[in-house]
Simulated assay, not measured.
Amino acid sequence: MTKAELQAWADSEGLAVDEAAWERLERLIGLWQQYGRAMNLVGTTDAEALWEHVQEGLQCVACAERAGAVDEGCCWVDVGSGGGLPGLVVAAVRPWAVILIEPRERRAAFLDLGLAAMGGRDRWVIRGRWGVSTWNEEVVRRLEARRESSFLILSSRAVFSPGEWLERSEEAEFPRGVVLCHVDLGVERVAGREPSNVVRGSRWSVLGFLR
Rank of each mutant, 00 (worst) to 15 (best):
T2V: 03
T2K: 10
A8K: 05
W9Y: 11
S12I: 09
S12V: 06
D18H: 13
E19C: 07
E23G: 15
L25M: 02
L25G: 01
E26Y: 01
R27A: 15
R27F: 01
L28R: 11
Q34G: 08
Y35N: 05
A38M: 11
L41D: 01
V42Y: 07
G43K: 08
T44Y: 06
T45S: 06
A47K: 14
E48R: 11
E48L: 09
A49H: 10
L50V: 04
W51Q: 01
W51F: 02
H53G: 04
H53M: 04
E56I: 12
L58Y: 08
V61C: 07
C63T: 12
E65C: 07
R66V: 07
G68A: 03
A69T: 08
A69I: 07
G73Q: 13
C74P: 08
C75A: 15
D78R: 02
G80L: 03
G82F: 00
G83N: 07
L85E: 04
G87R: 00
V89W: 04
A91M: 09
R94A: 09
R94L: 07
P95A: 14
W96K: 05
A97F: 06
I99Y: 12
L100S: 08
I101A: 01
P103K: 08
R106M: 02
A108V: 10
A108E: 11
L111H: 02
L113Q: 12
A117M: 14
M118K: 03
G119V: 13
D122K: 15
W124V: 12
R127D: 01
R129T: 11
R129H: 05
G131V: 03
G131P: 02
T134D: 14
N136L: 13
E137D: 14
V139F: 06
V140P: 00
V140T: 14
R141F: 09
R141A: 15
L143I: 12
E144M: 05
A145E: 13
A145M: 04
R146H: 06
R147S: 13
R147D: 10
S150E: 11
F151E: 01
R157C: 04
V159L: 11
P162R: 08
G163F: 02
G163H: 06
E164H: 01
R168H: 10
S169E: 01
S169P: 05
S169L: 02
E170H: 09
E170C: 04
A172Y: 13
A172L: 15
E173W: 12
F174A: 13
F174P: 08
V178P: 05
V183R: 06
D184H: 13
D184T: 09
G186Q: 00
R189V: 13
G192V: 03
G192Q: 06
P195S: 07
P195E: 03
P195Y: 12
S196H: 11
S196L: 10
V199Q: 11
R200C: 13
R200S: 13
G201W: 05
S202T: 13
R203Q: 14
S205W: 10
S205R: 14
V206P: 02
V206I: 13
L207N: 11
F209I: 09
